[in-house]
């Protein structure tokens, strides 16, 4: 049981939330005077109670989704303060505090104000955090972010994202004639690797290969996973010879890369087949993919 409790993420923040909500309710019930039923404003209570419930949902979502750190702590503090304020506002409809001090009810907005200040600071830190995270996404992301296009296995974007990027490049090609190149890379013996070491290690190999390709291309290029053991690299405003040079460098790097399993036993080095084309006239992304696949099949047979 103790192990289970300590294993909960953000245990201190959860505890703070539970304690602060409990204290707020208990204090209101203990010190407040229950209003007569005729004075209850039900609609007001539902509206304010709804606001409190929604801020609780935001807080729970923050605690469940974010990793530990300064931003999460500040966001949780801010949201907890807002929740207390909204809760007091709701309880105010049922309890009167005028017998303690006539202006006490007017103070209920102050925790929310403090919470919003804390959250504003948290937002600034969040922005800084995002700027650093964006640096790590260089070569994996261009122009826009869309999490539904992510490939969970490799951590790269999927073919759908590449389609959008290619469409953008094609539009630019039509507008100002800027040619671009696209390459497809494919692991030579992926099936055999999976047969020998299992699908789980195969998927790790895919993840590492994705990283390896990203490491060996330029900052302006973009890598996405196409499907299976195939990756696509977009070289914007690049000549075919330069794109082939870079792709060759990726393949050379893959040849000397070694995969390790849990016991640090070296698995087969991964080698890549590739095909690269230059897009010099308006084409649809499907046509580009088809052309790449055909050239890849041809290159494989030639090997």
């Amino acid at each position: 049981m103790a192990h289970f409790i300590t294993s909960i993420k953000h245990i201190h923040l959860w505890a703070l939330l539970i304690v602060s909500v409990t204290i707020t309710i208990l204090m209101a019930v203990h010190f407040g005077e229950l209003k007569p039923y005729a004075q209850f404003e039900i609609l007001d209570a539902i509206g304010e109670g709804g606001l409190a419930a929604m801020s609780l949902v935001w807080l729970v979502a923050t605690l469940l989704s974010r990793p530990q750190g300064r931003v999460t702590t500040a966001l949780s503090f801010g949201l907890t303060l807002m929740l207390i304020s909204l809760l007091l506002d709701c309880l105010d409809e049922f309890f009167s505090f005028n017998h303690i001090h006539p202006t006490l009810s007017s103070l209920e907005a102050f925790p929310a104000l403090l919470g919003m200040i804390v959250m504003s600071i948290a937002m600034y830190w969040w922005y800084q955090e995002q700027t650093f995270l964006n640096l790590t996404l260089l070569r994996k992301e261009r122009h826009f972010r869309e999490h539904t296009f992510t490939d969970y296995v490799t951590g790269l974007y999927s073919a759908r994202y590449m389609e959008k990027q290619i469409d953008a490049e094609v539009s630019q090609l039509i507008d100002d004639g800027t040619r671009f190149c696209v390459a497809i890379l494919d692991l030579k013996a992926y099936s055999q690797f999976c047969f020998k070491h299992g699908i789980t290690k195969g998927e790790l190999l895919l993840r590492d290969t994705g990283q390896l390709i990203t490491l060996n291309i330029r900052g302006c290029d973009l890598t996405c996973r196409y499907a299976g053991d195939k990756f696509i690299v977009l070289y914007p405003a690049t000549k075919l010879s330069t794109a082939i040079d870079i792709t060759n460098r990726v393949c050379t790097a893959a040849k000397v890369h070694h995969q390790y399993d849990k016991n640090l036993v070296t698995l087969n080095p991964s080698t890549l087949h590739y095909a690269c084309i230059e897009v010099s006239f308006a084409m649809q992304s499907e046509q580009i993919f088809e052309q790449l696949m055909a050239q890849l099949a041809h290159n494989k047979q030639a090997c």
């Binding site: 073919a159 196409y226 499907a227 299976g228 053991d229 993919f289 696949m293």
Partner: peptide
Amino acid sequence: PAHIEHYHAMQ
């Protein structure tokens, strides 16, 4: 299907 690339990748 929308994820036609997986069919293509199977060749």
